[in-house]
């Protein structure tokens, strides 16, 4: 990881075309993400935003019809989900699943050690691990009772999102894809989550924020903003595009694309 430098290509998606149950959801999508960048992918509901997140993380029930995704020089789509995770790709779920009976902190420890093994680092013992987690929990303003609970078990919507970002800050991924992380958060929780994400903004990492609303971008200022609609990136721009989308909605982008 230390050999990744600002500006290196982390993810290159070319012509990605994906079907779900026979229906074409992504249709020739192109996207390049470089180290040090934060990208926001915005778009109307049903545009394929979540499909993109899930496909990149390795969900099996999607049919890749055409195109490629290269992650740190490797064919991402050929890797199993767990191999992607160990190589530093993290998906923050829109709807984190509750897994009663699987302890939150043990999962996190196993996840971190799986990543460390991949990096050739020594696994952490319980003591070293707890020191890291407690540090990150303070950042995420989570109390220690979270450690003892089942994964997302009985968590409120906001707690689940915080837990996702906690996992991310502990795992320190090279590429974080955050799917609608802002949905269901009040303004205080949104700031905490944004703090967590911003703590990972370094020259050797990248973040892709998938979001429907602009408000998250007030707190995590993106370098690039893309409009995903009709299964493709229809328009890209800077922070200003997000503000324009907030003002004008998405229809004009679609009309512009149809006219072209």
């Amino acid at each position: 990881m230390s050999n990744i430098h600002k500006g290196d290509v982390i993810l290159q998606i070319s012509g990605l075309t994906v079907k779900v149950q026979g229906r074409r959801i992504l249709n020739g999508l192109n996207l390049t993400v470089r180290a040090g960048e934060v990208h926001a992918i915005m778009g109307p509901n049903g545009a394929g935003k979540s499909t993109l997140s899930q496909v990149l993380a390795g969900r099996a029930d999607y049919e890749i019809v055409a195109g490629s995704a290269v992650y740190l020089g490797e064919d991402l789509l050929a890797l199993a989900p767990e191999e992607r995770a160990r190589r530093g790709l993290f998906l923050g779920f829109q709807y984190p699943v509750e897994i009663p009976g699987v302890n939150n902190v043990y999962l996190l420890k196993a996840a971190l050690n799986a990543r460390r093994r991949q990096l050739g680092l020594q696994e952490l013992d319980a003591f070293e691990f707890l020191a890291i987690v407690k540090d990150k929990m303070a950042l995420m303003q989570m109390d220690e009772s979270f450690l003892k609970r089942g994964v997302n078990e009985g968590f409120s919507g906001g707690e689940k999102k915080r837990n996702e970002i906690l996992q991310m800050t502990v795992l320190e991924p090279t590429l974080a894809i955050l799917d609608e992380t802002d949905s269901g958060l009040d303004i205080d929780a949104l700031k905490v989550v944004a703090n967590g994400v911003n703590s990972l903004r370094t020259d050797n990492r990248a973040v892709v924020l998938v979001t429907h609303y602009q408000r998250l971008l007030d707190h995590i200022v993106p370098d690039h903003v893309h409009v995903l609609a009709a299964g493709r990136i229809l328009k890209s721009g800077d922070r200003g595009l997000a503000l324009e989308l907030e003002r004008r909605g998405y229809d004009w982008v679609l009309e512009e694309a149809n006219a072209a």
Binding site: P81, E82, A111
Partner: peptide, 24 residues
């Protein structure tokens, strides 16, 4: 899928969920 995206191998994830199933 959630456990796999956290880097657990499939065998471990399956065992863990099986164990959790009877945990109560």
């Amino acid at each position: 899928f959630y456990l796999l995206t956290r880097g657990l191998d499939r065998e471990t994830a399956r065992a863990l969920l099986t164990y959790a199933f009877v945990g109560d």
